[in-house]
C-alpha cells in the first residue's frame, strides 16, 4: 500500500517528467539530402528544408492538451480526483501520439528515411505512467 505522501510524490515526479518532455524532441525522421523533420511539443521543425517542400507546415501544438493534463495533475495536490482525471486524460493523449508514431515510422521506412525516437517521448511516457500510478494510489489511499 502506497501512502498519501508517496502517492503525491509520484504525481509530482510525473509532472516534472512531463514538463521536461515538453521541451525535448519527441521523434525525428531524416530523409535523403539531410532533410530532417523534428517533432516537438510546440511544433515541427524542418532542418535543411528544400525549396520544393510542400506549402504549409504540418506543425501541430501537441503540447496544448499535455499542458491541460499537467495542470490537472498539479491541481490533484488539493483535489484528489483532479490527479486521476489528469493522468487518465494524459494516457489517452499519449495513446494518440503512439498511433501517430507508428504511422510516421511506417511512412519513414517506406520512403527510406531514418526514423529515431527522441528523449521527449521517453520522458512523456515515463511521466504519464508515474503520474498514473501516483493518481491511482491517491484514490486507493483515500478509499
Amino acid at each position: 500500500m502506497i501512502g498519501r505522501a508517496t502517492a503525491v510524490a509520484l504525481v509530482a515526479a510525473g509532472v516534472v517528467l512531463t514538463a521536461t518532455a515538453l521541451v525535448l524532441p519527441w521523434y525525428s525522421t531524416v530523409y535523403a539530402g539531410g532533410v530532417e523533420v523534428v517533432v516537438r511539443a510546440w511544433g515541427t521543425e524542418v532542418v535543411n528544408k528544400p525549396g520544393d517542400w510542400p506549402a504549409g507546415d504540418l506543425s501541430p501544438w501537441y503540447g496544448v492538451p499535455v499542458v491541460v493534463t499537467v495542470a490537472l495533475l498539479v491541481a490533484g495536490v488539493w483535489v484528489r480526483q483532479a490527479a486521476l482525471a489528469g493522468s487518465a486524460a494524459q494516457v489517452g493523449a499519449v495513446a494518440v501520439i503512439a498511433a501517430l508514431l507508428v504511422s510516421e515510422r511506417g511512412h519513414a521506412v517506406e520512403q527510406q528515411g531514418d526514423f529515431a525516437l527522441g528523449f521527449g517521448l521517453v520522458f512523456l511516457v515515463a511521466g504519464t505512467l508515474v503520474a498514473l500510478v501516483g493518481a491511482v494510489a491517491v484514490q486507493r489511499e483515500a478509499a
Partner: peptide, 8 residues
C-alpha cells in the same frame, strides 16, 4: 477522462 484526452 481518457476519452477526453484522446479527443483533445
Amino acid at each position: 477522462a481518457s476519452l477526453a484526452g484522446v479527443t483533445g
